[in-house]
Write a protein that binds this DNA or RNA. Structure first.
Lengths: 143, 143
DNA sequence: ATTATTGCAAAGACTTTGCAACTCC
DNA sequence: GGAGTTGCAAAGTCTTTGCAATAAT
């Protein structure tokens, strides 16, 4: 994502354009690695050696509240972050920290269709999240 | 779940039968509230005032590794626990801490069917988890 | 100039760990 | 009796918070 685009997103959300915010947004959207706060800090320190985790967390929380990014829950208690783009699911590897995006038109249709029809009594449905568990065959289990 | 049944489960898993383990298993299976470790400690202290969170966590981790219970991820970083019974999903409330079980035969069929057919390249599929988000209409938002 | 944001350090929350004492089989 | 479990306290990890200094509009 180009720098111009990043700035546009911040502006649209009435956020002041700071280098730190731009950098965090850039890392999360461009990496697509579902990084942890710590991962993000590590990347950003190349360009902003003085940035601290406290700041990263503040920025991530701001973005999350505005719906610019989304938290991803993992089985250990470390939160990871995902840019909000088109609706997609996540594939979790049982043997590594890898989490990959998964998008399938058919699956989307099936589930959307189900939830349009299905009424859950006493509950106002808004969205669903699907996690796919298993393991990647390759041994190149990059994070 | 009867005490006899709880003991059977522990025995089946080659665990020593201790009052603490029996109590933890009882709380998680009978409450079906998806309690946190802290919730569980609170309940058990009625009968075992001296039990500590450390012990609760050790027991919960043992049970989780053996597949007797399962961790449930939440958006804040507090882990909650669910007895492993038949396959079911969870309904999350956006406005309270409530998490309810959801089981629907049709949904199960649809998803099982999809994943039987669908091959994800480079990935060995094992299971899926579906989270349903929205909010409960009632104001009696018991936890 | 005003208001929001950053950096830093300290505090907070949840969870894990080490070890001696104790239980279960 | 021996191996495994508990209780306790201390430590660990991730995340939040408060506040003065700083930067954005």
């Amino acid at each position: 994502m180009a720098n111009k685009e990043l700035i546009r997103i911040l502006a649209e959300n009435n956020l002041k354009i700071t280098p730190q915010r731009t950098a965090v947004l850039e890392v999360v959207t461009n990496l697509r690695n579902h990084p942890t706060a710590d991962d993000i800090a590590e990347y950003i320190r190349f360009s902003y050696p003085h940035i601290t985790l406290g700041t990263i967390y503040k920025i991530l929380n701001t973005f999350t509240k505005l719906g610019i990014i989304e938290k991803i829950n993992t089985d250990n208690d470390i939160t990871r972050y995902d840019p909000v783009l088109e609706k997609h699911h996540h594939i979790y590897c049982a043997e590594s920290e890898r989490i990959e995006d998964f998008y399938d038109e058919e699956l989307k249709k099936i589930l959307d269709n189900y939830f349009i029809k299905k009424k859950i009594p006493g509950f106002i449905y808004k969205d669903y999240k699907l996690q796919i568990m298993g393991k990647f065959k390759e041994s190149d289990n990059k994070k």
